[in-house]
Amino acid sequence: MVAGDGLEWKEGGVPVSQRFDDPYFSLGNGLAETRHVFLDGNDLPGRFRPGFHVAELGFGTGLNMLAALICWRAAGVAGPLRFTSFEGYPLAATDIARALQAFPEAEAIAGPFLDQWASGARVIRMEGLEAEVIVGDVRDTLPAWQGRADAWFLDGFSPAKNPEMWGEALMAEVAAHTGAQGSFATYTAAGHVRRALQAAGFQVERRAGFGHKRHMSVGRLG
């Protein structure tokens, strides 16, 4: 079934971007994938500390943000988690709400986020969270960003279908906006992506992927 802004809904409530012909999260268990790839891949919650800053390429349904917030709250760290995400094609609140129905744990805390998002807010404040979603072409918005992240979630659509999100120049910008000993994690193990991240200054390693994906990539800024 097709609905909303270029979405097709697969069985199980998985939204698929018609623009990129790629699902917004795992056709299996998207929340488990987020935890395996982005949280475990960045060694979280072990590295959490007050003021910790996560940045992300590809906001999508906000599932990664909510998973990070659940993890942050459980860790009991003082103050809010800072979270910045770069998104070219933001979804409507109704589509996000529909997608999150597949993940009761995330849906249970999503109400304040959805209310703010529906009102047009792109700076989101919730208990334990200060988040900003920067909308636009990331090749323009990331270079202009003044922040630095402690951990990156690289979660754009697949490199084969959305190559602009994974180019060498953009990976260099990721590194330039990473704090000392900062990290990244991504579901992709594509060779050109790993080489771009290495060229940007990350020490890159391949790890076991989630589900049917054999490998993923993680790294620390050297």
Rank of each mutant, 00 (worst) to 15 (best):
V204R: 02
W9G: 09
Q146C: 09
E87N: 12
A93R: 04
G201P: 02
A106S: 03
A3W: 03
W152Y: 05
D140P: 07
G60L: 03
A110C: 11
A149E: 00
P23M: 10
G46V: 03
P90N: 09
L154W: 00
W145P: 02
E8D: 14
P80S: 08
L27A: 11
T186F: 02
M165W: 12
A74I: 12
V193Y: 04
A102T: 08
P104E: 08
D5T: 15
L44S: 07
A78D: 15
A208L: 09
G209E: 06
F157V: 00
H53T: 10
L114H: 06
F210A: 06
A99H: 09
E8K: 13
E205R: 07
Y89G: 08
G211R: 02
G219T: 12
M171N: 14
K10N: 10
Q101V: 06
A92F: 00
G111R: 12
G28Y: 11
D95A: 13
K213N: 06
V16M: 06
N42F: 00
V14D: 10
V37N: 02
F202Q: 04
F86I: 10
S85Y: 01
M216T: 00
L221E: 01
S85E: 08
R206Q: 12
M216S: 03
L66G: 05
N42Y: 01
R220G: 06
L197E: 11
L91A: 05
S26I: 02
A200T: 02
G62I: 08
Y187S: 02
L69K: 02
I96F: 12
A121H: 12
R82I: 06
Q116C: 01
F25E: 01
A172W: 05
E107R: 13
A160M: 11
M171T: 03
F157M: 07
E164T: 12
V218F: 03
R98C: 03
Y89H: 13
P112G: 05
A196W: 05
K10Q: 12
L66E: 04
G128C: 02
G147P: 01
Y89V: 05
P112W: 09
E164W: 08
M1D: 14
A144I: 14
A68L: 06
T178P: 04
F38D: 01
G179Q: 15
G209R: 10
W166T: 08
T34R: 02
L31S: 05
D5R: 15
G51W: 06
A172Q: 15
W145H: 03
A68N: 08
I70E: 15
L63I: 06
T34V: 14
M65C: 07
Y187M: 00
D22S: 12
E11Y: 14
G60F: 01
G62F: 09
A110I: 13
L63A: 08
